[in-house]
Each structure stands twice: as structure tokens, then as C-alpha cells.
Design a protein around this nucleic acid. Structure first.
Lengths: 143, 143
DNA sequence: AAATATAGTTGACTTTGTCAACTATACAGA
DNA sequence: TCTGTATAGTTGACAAAGTCAACTATATTT
């Protein structure tokens, strides 16, 4: 492996960590933390999901997740019920309120990305998406 | 702005947040947190630097930074001295030990990236670096 | 010289995340 | 079927990370 490639990856990581930080910074004004928002996203996307699956997807500690889910349930964002196939597990779904919250967060997140992209020419924006897709494709196979 | 581009950026952000998390996870075994490691990196790269500059580069709270620098000084990693041009400010440099710590962290970080890239064919790795460079170029101008 | 701004420090606090112990259920093998 | 082991989730106790406001000291502006 060439060291120049490793170096480029590290340059990119520093740069993109900042970029994501910049994006997220504004979303943090919402009532939900980034982790919560991501959890809500995963539940929405899956339709219904097991807590253990969220753990696996997000590489998040189970006690931490458990507490977050407890809070979200208390706020009426999610519903938990015993899993039918496995009585140890709980199946989680978004409540109606939860879906509304998701829509709100989703819109805010779209707007945030859009704002950061507006200075770009449309050809640049398209190129950006192209390069991103390519990176995901390269890295995804091997993880 | 096309919604498909926004969506692709968001897909990428989720994916890459995970990827960076994966990378960093192992570095956390070191005696230094990610933020500390990044601060050490910035001091090394700049040669000598003002605390306020680190704040600006890293978008980090000044009280938080102040405390981290205090700790690093106590451990003999950095040296602080009153800035010559501005007596309010402090100029920070790495001590000899600090440079050793940097080299260690730097090597560990390189190895970590390398490990994640080994499954890639060399053409893929090169393509990866190419796409990364392109993204930085597109986004950098406008920030 | 007075008012205002900037650099950094400190105290008090909140949020985020971790670790180990525990309960309950599932599963695999003797 | 009993036994041991693994998995799902919860809880308590704690540690790490980050924030906010007040403060000192110096610089800058008017």
C-alpha cells in the first residue's frame, strides 16, 4: 500500500470529520441528539426493528441504547412490544408522533445539506454525488 | 438543487461517519482521546501555534481546550509560553516527549488506515484516493 | 482615559458514553 | 430433560466529553 494513499485518506478523514461536524452543529438545536436522530431514522427505515439490530447497525452500547429507547418511549416517540419470535427481545416501531418527529428531522437535515451545497455549481454538486457514490461502492464491499 | 444529490450526500454522511468511527475505535485504546490526538497533530503541523488558532481550526470550545492543554502540559507533552506579540495569548509547542507521542499516534493512525485498506485491490485504493481528493477540492473552495 | 474586544482560565454543570452485574429467555449438547 | 452457555435487554455506578457563564489580563478603538 502506497503511503501517499494512506495520507490522502487521512487528509480526507480530517476534512470530512470537520464537514460533518459543521453539518451536525445546527441540527443539535433540535430536541434530539444526533444519536437519537439516527436511531429514529433507523426505526423509520426498518419499519420495525429489534433493539439488538440497532446496536449492530450503529455500533452502540446496549445500555446506552436501552436508556435512549426508554426516553423515546416515555416521550411517546416509539412503541416497544415483546418480540413474538423471541421473548427476550423487544420490537420497536415509531408512533404517529415519532413519524412526525422523523419527518421534521429529515426535512431539517435535508435543508442543512442543501444549504452547504448551494455555493456549488450544479456540475460540481453532481460530481460530488458521483465521487461519494464511488467511495461508498469501493469501501462497502469490504466491510 | 436536486433532491437525489442531497440524498446521496446524506447516504454518504451516514456511511462515512460509521467508517470514521470504525477507524477511530481502535485508536481510543491509546492514552489520548481523539480530540487530544488531533490537537497534538495541529501543534506538530504548525510547529508553534496559539491556543486561539486551535480553537478556530477545530471549532472547539475555549474552556474545553484550555483544560486539555493544561493536562498536556502537566504530562510534559506540550510547552506553553507567553506570546511575544500579544501578552494575552500563549504560544504552544510540542516538547521532545510530545513529538515522540505524535510520532507514535501518527504511526498508529497510519497502520489503522492501512489495515482498513488492505482488502482493496491497488486500483481500488488509487481510485479511492482520487475520489477523496476530488471531494475535498469541490467542498474546500466554498468553506 | 474609557469603553469595548479578545485570549485564556476556572467553577459548575449537562450530556454522552462505558462497564459490570443482573434478569429473563433461548439454544445446544450430554 | 437437565446443564451449561449464549443472547436480549435493563439498571446502577461511574467516567469522559463538552458547554456556559463569570472572571482576569491584555489589547484595541474611540
Amino acid at each position: 500500500m502506497q503511503t501517499s494513499i494512506i495520507e490522502e485518506v487521512r487528509v480526507f478523514n480530517r476534512f470530512y470529520t470537520d464537514f460533518i461536524g459543521l453539518l451536525n452543529q445546527y441540527l443539535l438545536d433540535s430536541a434530539y441528539s444526533l444519536t437519537e436522530a439516527r436511531i429514529i431514522y433507523e426505526i423509520f427505515t426498518a419499519g420495525n426493528i429489534q433493539a439488538s439490530q440497532i446496536m449492530e447497525i450503529m455500533h452502540i452500547d446496549k445500555s446506552y441504547l436501552s436508556r435512549i429507547l426508554k426516553r423515546l418511549e416515555k416521550e411517546g416517540i416509539i412503541e416497544k412490544r415483546k418480540s413474538i419470535q423471541d421473548a427476550r427481545g423487544i420490537t420497536i416501531t415509531l408512533s404517529k408522533k415519532g413519524r412526525q418527529v422523523f419527518e421534521h428531522l429529515n426535512r431539517a437535515s435535508n435543508e442543512q445539506v442543501e444549504k452547504l451545497l448551494t455555493p456549488l455549481k450544479s456540475t460540481e454538486a453532481e460530481a460530488l454525488a458521483f465521487h461519494m457514490k464511488a467511495i461508498v461502492k469501493i469501501l462497502k464491499v469490504h466491510s
